[in-house]
Amino acid sequence: MLLIACPWCGPRDEAEFHYGGQAHVAHPDDPAALSDEEWARYLFFRDNPKGLFAERWSHAAGCRRWFNAVRDTATNEIHAVYRVGEPRPVNS
């Protein structure tokens, strides 16, 4: 079980968190302006890297805040956590 450092609460057991998939996939500002393919990319396409991956987590059984984490999918090591709206840290 991972030990995840919530940016608001500090390190907590993974069981307190809810996984939210890839981070930085914003809902398009004007979906109507998108082609079917562009909309389908937003809906259905996600990265699946072996290595560093920016992903969303929610501290569901704690402060209930969403935040982002950069995790190495091969080792499960979390390299950075940062709050919603903050940019992905460089080098992570």
Partner: peptide
Amino acid sequence: KADFVGRRSYARA
């Protein structure tokens, strides 16, 4: 409404 969650999908084939 200009938009709501899901609206764009009703224009998908």
